[in-house]
């Protein structure tokens, strides 16, 4: 009797630990929190449109974290798709290859605009990259020399800006949004103010020049927000003169509380971003594990559904939510590349 009980317990324990790598019957996705709302809309509509397939699971967790999990290997216990708000880095592709994920298909879903906004009660705001550089860089050029940023008020940066303390809530360094902010605003401003030339004279290494251009001041006037846009919105509600960085779709959902700033005179909108007039935008992607196509039920259909014009075209639910659709030819190219099985 006793030995029977023991064997039973041992059986249960081994059954619990061995060979439960069951086949999965729904698509598993993780990655960027910027792509998350779009992926959710597609996943939900996919589940409703194809009753034969289960609704895909979309995890949040950031571009970097998602790609890391994605690159863990091939098999039903690993992810099928990683959402990314930036292109995959070479180091990430290498890591993927090392773990056996050799065939990855890249799918570009459209563009995301990044907007600058303050509280709705403020006057209209016109920003230039150089204003943000002069307000937020760690070091700026004064009388031909690099000094710690002395500006305390927006009006000191540009007399057309309000006479208020500088306070900017920018995405933290783990966000894909930060990279776009660094490139399109700080680096551009660095060049426009002529600071780049001074830095070039001081530092020889090109990478270091760039790093100096995009270094943000650490004296508390520029605040890194590691949470989501909701946190930035709360910060602006608390400090009415603060400037926040948002995604276009988030701004559009909260347009009654925020006033958006023009950049180089252009009002951000789906149209101005699609045409390339508004400078601060970036492409959004997802990456598909080719080895899982045909193995995980619904994966191929999900990708095809996502890339169809019903989802990412100009008059689609994603565009309605705030995604900036890619031009017609580019969308066609994305679909063709996926069908042809083009890998990175």
């Amino acid at each position: 009797m006793k030995s029977l009980k023991l064997t039973l317990a041992a059986l249960v324990a081994s059954a619990a630990f061995a060979g439960v790598a069951v086949a999965r019957d729904q698509v598993q996705i993780a990655g960027s929190s910027t792509v998350l709302p779009y992926a959710k809309i597609v996943a939900e509509t996919f589940g409703e449109t194809f009753p034969d397939f289960k609704t895909p699971i979309v995890e949040s967790g950031g571009t970097g974290g998602g790609l890391k999990e994605f690159c863990k290997g091939v098999g039903p216990e690993t992810l099928d798709i990683a959402n990314a708000s930036r292109a995959m880095k070479d180091s990430e592709i290498e890591a993927c290859k090392a773990a056996g994920v050799t065939e990855i298909q890249e799918v570009k879903i459209g563009y995301d605009g990044i907007v600058f906004a303050t509280d709705a009660g403020n006057a209209d705001l016109k920003l230039e990259p150089k204003d943000l550089y002069l307000a937020l860089a760690a070091e700026i050029v004064v009388d031909g020399k690099l000094v710690a940023n002395p500006n305390k008020k927006w009006s000191e940066v540009n007399k057309d800006l309000p006479d208020a303390e500088i306070a900017a809530y920018i995405p933290g360094e783990k966000h894909g949004t930060r990279e776009v902010f660094d490139e399109k605003m700080l680096a551009a401003g660095c060049k426009a103010t002529g600071a780049l030339d001074v830095i070039k004279a001081a530092v020889a290494d090109e990478k270091e020049q760039h790093a100096k251009c995009i270094a943000v001041r650490k004296d508390g006037l520029a605040v890194d927000i590691d949470g989501d846009y909701t946190e930035t919105l709360a910060r602006i509600a608390a400090n009415k003169t603060g400037l926040g960085v948002f995604g276009l779709s988030f701004y559009e959902n909260n347009a009654d509380k925020l006033k958006v700033a023009t950049v180089s005179g252009i009002v951000p909108s789906t149209e101005t971003i699609a045409s390339g007039e508004y400078p601060v935008s970036r492409p959004l992607f997802f990456y598909v594990k080719k080895a899982h196509l045909g193995v995980i039920p619904g994966l191929k259909e999900y990708v095809e559904f996502f890339t169809s014009d019903d989802m990412i075209g100009p008059d689609s639910p994603l565009a309605e939510y705030g995604l900036v659709p890619a031009p017609d030819a580019e969308r066609e190219e994305v679909r063709k590349a996926f069908v042809d099985g083009k890998i990175m």
Binding site: K40, K54, I57
Partner: peptide
């Protein structure tokens, strides 16, 4: 739960504890 993938968008009610 974040690291084991439970912070996720799940639309279907799980039938067993093995479902997401």
């Amino acid at each position: 739960l974040l690291l084991i993938g439970m912070v996720a968008f799940v639309a279907d009610i799980p039938g067993t504890p093995l479902d997401p």
